[in-house]
Write a protein that binds this DNA or RNA. Structure first.
Lengths: 234, 234
DNA sequence: CGCTACATTGAAATGTCTCAAAGGCCGTGG
DNA sequence: CCACGGCCTTTGAGACATTTCAATGTAGCG
């Protein structure tokens, strides 16, 4: 049976290594990396294609090799919330690997995207064989859980203006080298979805922050942070 | 050097096993359980005592043996949000074990409480020695992350009334055997904090749900669910 | 039995959303 | 390369949900 018979055209065995891109594997020896690499598959997606959607059975870990992926969920009332955006080296699909068997989120290619897929059972074998990988994943999960609970807590306790201000501070802190300008990593529409508000409110609140002298909107996507401490007190 | 010299009075070596209470360990053999058990310490806390607080260095995993523990955080603006309530068999303190080195949350004994403490380095040894424990913890983390992201998404997209309705549905689903009555697991004040609103609003929304014929408030803590499907559509 | 914290109710103030309309940016196809 | 269409963004005004503050009622615990 040829591969063409089994897989759709966009799936090929992975020859390039995106495995080594990922923090959870980067402490491994070359031989171990190669061992994992041979089990992976490379899959390509066109802009707007869904990589998986809620309800799909989860069978693999997806590592972004090239491109950009939107992870979002639909709430009980049918509204969409942007959960995170993945860039090369990030991974997803891990949740359902260890407990639930179906995805609760949607993963959509924002631009043409290439991902590596590692099958669930292959991964579990590696985890038992190389326990240090589990510790890395645990660390990653910890961070994500921490981030998610912090986000939850902000939704629960902060008004929209403060959520925006804190978001700006967060992305400013991720900028290296240190700077006072940030580039919004998504459209304001997506930012609204991410922050649990509407584009209209985002637009107005950015203006209010500017009126207060805390930021300056250079372009739609470029923001200069004028008063960092002020933002933290909003 | 005697133990009394090292530990405050409320800390004693653990002779009883709360280790076996915990899902992440309950697949282990008796000898392995015993091996873990000897490394644990038992600590008692009086009502309202803090088990740890934000900023504390994290050095151990805490397993609730007896009692009830409130986990909460303070947001940037200083408001408190209830994150979860722990009952016997639940554990906490895991976050900082794998990545961050300090707690971001507060853990407070709601009533007199006994916990078991496993030291960070002991635990890491066990994880490397018995990789299956890591898989269990990964599964637990997955579930928690899933829950946290779902919660986040509800905050982002649902109005207070819907959040309350969904909360009632959630706790109804946890009730075994199946029933139509739920006991609120916390005060309405705490519920307000958990759901990101105020006690006043909670009070009013419960009344509205009752007016709509979806629930009946039997006592302050006992709620009869009349129309489950209706709650999901709120 | 009384204290304290929790719970409820009302009314006013505020924050945010919604709907509608206009402006601006970007990629596509001519 | 420019013009076009579509989508994102902005602005305004009105509607709505929720918070806030103040006061009263209520339950549980010592």
């Amino acid at each position: 049976m040829s591969k063409d018979a089994i897989y759709p055209k966009n799936v090929v065995p992975s020859h390039t290594s995106c495995v080594s891109l990922v923090p959870i594997f980067n402490h491994l020896e070359k031989e171990q990396l190669d061992e994992i690499k041979v089990t992976t598959q490379s899959v390509s997606y066109k802009k707007q294609e869904l990589i998986y959607h809620a309800g799909d059975e989860s069978t693999s870990l997806y590592i972004i090799h090239k491109g950009k992926v939107r992870i979002y969920r639909l709430s009980e009332s049918g509204k969409e919330q942007l959960v995170r955006i993945l860039n090369p080296g990030d991974f997803t699909g891990e949740m359902a690997l260890f407990s639930e068997s179906t995805h609760e989120t949607y993963a959509e290619a924002m631009i043409d995207t290439k991902i590596c897929r590692i099958d669930r059972s292959d991964l579990q074998d590696f985890l038992l064989k190389y326990p240090s990988i589990s510790l890395k994943i645990l660390a990653e999960f910890s961070n994500r859980l921490e981030a998610s609970e912090k986000q939850s807590s902000r939704f629960a306790t902060e008004k929209v203006e403060a959520r925006i201000a804190l978001f700006l501070v967060d992305i400013l802190n991720e900028e290296l080298p240190k700077t006072t300008e940030v580039t919004l990593p998504m459209s304001k529409k997506d930012l609204a979805s991410y922050l649990g508000t509407t584009p209209e409110t985002i637009s107005r609140k950015f203006n209010e922050l500017e009126d207060k002298g805390l930021i300056k909107q250079l372009t739609h996507k470029q923001i200069k942070i004028i008063d960092l401490d002020g933002l933290l007190l909003v």
